[in-house]
Design a protein around this nucleic acid. Sequence first.
DNA 1: CTCCAGGTCCATA
DNA 2: TATGGACATGGA
Length: 305
Amino acid sequence: MPQKVTWTQKKEDLYIKVNGHFDFNHCLKFLNRNPAECLHRVTTTQFWKVLPLTEQPVLIAAGAHPKGLLVKTLDGSLSPDKASEVIRYVIELFDLTRDLDPFYKQMEADPSLNRVVRSLRGLRLIGIPDLFEALCWSVIGQQINLNFAYNLKRRLVESTGSSLSWNGERYWTFPSPETVLQISDEDFKNWQFSRGKYVYIKGIAEAFVTGTLSKNSLVQMSMEDAYESLLSLKGIGPWSAHYVLMKCLGYSEAYPIQDVGLHNALKYQLNRDEKPSLSELEDLGKRWHPWQGYVTFYLWHTLIT
DNA sequence: CTCCAGGTCCATA
DNA sequence: TATGGACATGGA
């Protein structure tokens, strides 16, 4: 059962009350894990981002507040429609409707990972609410190290995305599918994308533009059907499909079993010399069901230096 | 120099 | 159905 989230508005401030476990600092640490991140900014106590809403982008600064989150919108007045869109986006971004009690109960019985999970209590799965962005990011991240991936994303976003300046800082949004389709292969090459990556990304953009693909249609399917739809896209394999199911479509049981980060984190946390085998990963996945995605995310968090 | 990074596709047998 | 190579680049 999803957990209830309530909120109140005072002028440009939105106070979101989170029921259940929530630790903003654990979330902030994950959001701050790479200095080359270009789609949001993290300061000591605040998370800053331009939200890509339907009418116009809105810059927010979010910080901890007793029992929840205080979201300040920083540019212009906040109509009721806009406010509820901001709320919806923030709820998805921080997975605020998830009831974590069953997850914690289940993991308490897990002798190997209960300490890790306990140490990150209140961490929620940080999502990528925008499906196009999530798909592109999964393609960009394939096979290469994360630092390089963040640089590729940054070159793409800072060359073709939109930006908004506030108080001397510039905030970017991910380019639209239409914009991505206009990018020349030459540009992608100069940004050091492999040919595979930009062909896949353009193909995905094409699927959005032609209406073959939309988040709206995927959320109405079963997880299995959504998985198959994602797999049918060139460049989206099992890892990417599961990545998108967990980061964008809200499936806590999505399980990117091929993920190298997951393998390494398990190796360390289980105190092994080798990475776990595929069959062991499958067994672990069965044990964690339906929280494979959450466990994976918690393990990713342990990799932050 | 070799191997590995948040994999995936394609050719070949 | 299964396996090998290519892909771009940087760091260990």
